[in-house]
């Protein structure tokens, strides 16, 4: 009886949420406010052009809201820390079952491609959609594939912690150098000429910061995934 009531409550709340969603979407679609939107976007693009970065979203995430990104990374770090504290295995017990042949061979083939794609997304974050967060998670998914296919594979904790520490310190250091040179945390102190917009080496510190973010996110997500997979089964 109680269970039934629980299900029906879920159903009604699902209905209510769906109705709310539909109403919101209709509101957004029907509301005609092109002027406001256009003005905000134009102002943003104008500011973005000063930094010489082709992808305006990257400028917002890394430069205009760079301090928020630092906070987001801190949140991710705390999440990884919590999962590590709860799930870290004291005795390394390999999985009992062997993964199947196709997975073993296909992962060997796919892993380099996934890694290359992740690094590409990371490095070209200031030119094309994507960036540090996405690239880091793609790399972590590559690590996940290796972890599933090979029981003995494991990234040493020292490597992960070294990468993560390096990335965190580098982010804050870049920000502090900007503070010293330009009186602004994460100030763009490297040359960022607008004539170089669209080139790989352009945008001053913005690609550097996004690569650092990518390294940090990649190592943290790999740590989370590894802790979840390599968890010590007590039975």
């Amino acid at each position: 009886m109680n269970f039934k009531r629980d299900i029906s409550t879920k159903t009604y709340s699902g209905f209510a949420l769906s109705a709310l969603l539909v109403l919101t979407i209709l509101n957004v679609l029907l509301q005609n406010i092109p002027g406001k939107v256009e003005r905000a976007g134009e102002k943003l693009l104008e500011l973005n052009a000063q930094e010489g970065v082709a992808n305006a979203v990257t400028t917002v995430v890394v430069y205009f809201r760079g301090f928020d990104t630092l906070g987001e990374i801190a949140v991710l770090f705390i999440a990884a820390l919590g999962i590590g504290l709860m799930l870290s295995s004291h005795s390394k017990v390999p999985h009992k079952e062997e993964s199947n042949f196709i997975l073993q061979k296909a992962s060997k083939l796919l892993f380099p491609v996934i890694m290359l794609f992740g690094v590409y997304v990371m490095i070209y974050g200031h030119l094309s959609p994507g960036g540090g967060f996405q690239g880091g998670v793609i790399i972590a998914s590559g690590v996940l594939l290796l972890l599933i296919s090979d029981q003995n594979f494991e990234i040493p904790h020292s490597v992960i912690s070294a990468l993560e520490t390096f990335a965190g310190i580098a982010y804050v250091l870049i920000g502090l150098i900007g503070l010293v040179v330009l009186d602004r945390f994460l100030g763009n102190f490297l040359p960022h000429d607008i004539s170089e917009m669209g080139m790989l080496f352009s945008g001053g510190i913005i690609p550097l910061v996004y690569i650092v973010v990518g390294i940090k996110v990649g190592s943290e997500m790999s740590l989370i995934v590894q802790n979840l997979i390599k968890r010590n089964d007590d039975d």
């Binding site: 979203v57 990257t58 959609p129 960036g131 967060f133 996405q134 793609i138 972590a140 998914s141 995934v225």
Partner: peptide, 13 residues
Amino acid sequence: DVAMTEAVIGAGI
């Protein structure tokens, strides 16, 4: 950008 994030984080990991 958001589509890529959603594909990687939401649908993937």
